[in-house]
């Protein structure tokens, strides 16, 4: 597991599009490998994660691959790919591999960055003539949020027109849909047996709008932004 290193973020570090906003929201930042993350928003983060919280994971590693040879290439790299599109599978190193279509896959690092599948795949990939597996710059194109807690479904019902109830939307299921009128990828990945959780990936240029829309929808349930540290406790 990576260590949080207390740091004042400067422009050479990988920062989230939400950085300036989070500064004004009282975030405590830390350096975490090559990136700046919000370590903590308040001392209540741990409780918040269980009731309703949103964490910004945008600076954590992730990668994507697309093209007709992609499933074959990923399997060669030892990745277990989900059998069906719109399903996600946990890898041995903790990474989550989400199959977005027959050919397109998204790899999300585990939150502790204990493993490094997303980075390893990106590094071992190169463009080969006539071999159709192409890297997608997912760490830049998409922002990554994690929503969790008892009220997460009721809150998402205010911004997303898909039935996310536990019965209809199983753990590991993916919905690519409109969230607050922004196209996004929603992946159910419960924090643990007691706490429901969803990854939300959206266009990075839209994340400020999405963040504000979510906080507005969360207010009714006393939902708050949380830091990464509280998620790692679970």
């Amino acid at each position: 597991m990576s260590e949080f290193i207390t740091a004042t973020a400067d422009s050479v570090l990988r920062r989230s599009q939400l950085y300036h906003l989070q500064q004004s929201e009282g975030a405590q930042f830390a350096k975490y490998q090559d990136a700046v993350v919000v370590k903590q928003f308040s001392s209540n983060d741990s409780q918040q994660v269980k009731s309703l919280g949103v964490a910004d994971l945008s600076t954590l590693p992730r990668s994507g691959f697309k093209g007709k040879h992609t499933p074959q290439w990923l399997e060669q790299q030892g990745v277990t790919i989900p059998e069906q599109p719109n399903c996600a599978t946990k890898q041995n190193d903790g990474a989550l591999v989400a199959r977005l279509s027959e050919q397109e896959h998204l790899i999300l690092s585990d939150l502790a960055m204990a493993g490094s599948l997303a980075q390893i795949l990106e590094q071992s990939w190169s463009i080969e003539p006539d071999y159709m597996c192409y890297s997608l710059p997912r760490r830049d194109s998409h922002a990554w949020l994690y929503l969790s807690g008892e009220h997460v479904r009721a809150m998402l019902a205010k911004v997303c027109g898909i039935d996310l109830s536990a019965v209809e939307f199983a753990n590991g299921q993916i919905a690519q849909t409109s969230i607050a009128r922004i196209n996004g990828i929603l992946i159910r990945d419960d924090l643990n047996d007691d706490t429901a959780g969803f990854h939300l990936l959206c266009d990075s240029s839209s994340v400020i709008f999405v963040w504000q829309s979510l906080l507005d929808a969360m207010a009714e349930f006393d939902g708050k932004p949380v830091g990464l540290a509280a998620l790692l406790e679970n």
């Binding site: 159709m132 997608l136 830049d140 194109s141 240029s205």
Partner: peptide
Amino acid sequence: DVDIANVTSAW
């Protein structure tokens, strides 16, 4: 045989 990706927000 072409893969098309919208990378607008990545850059």
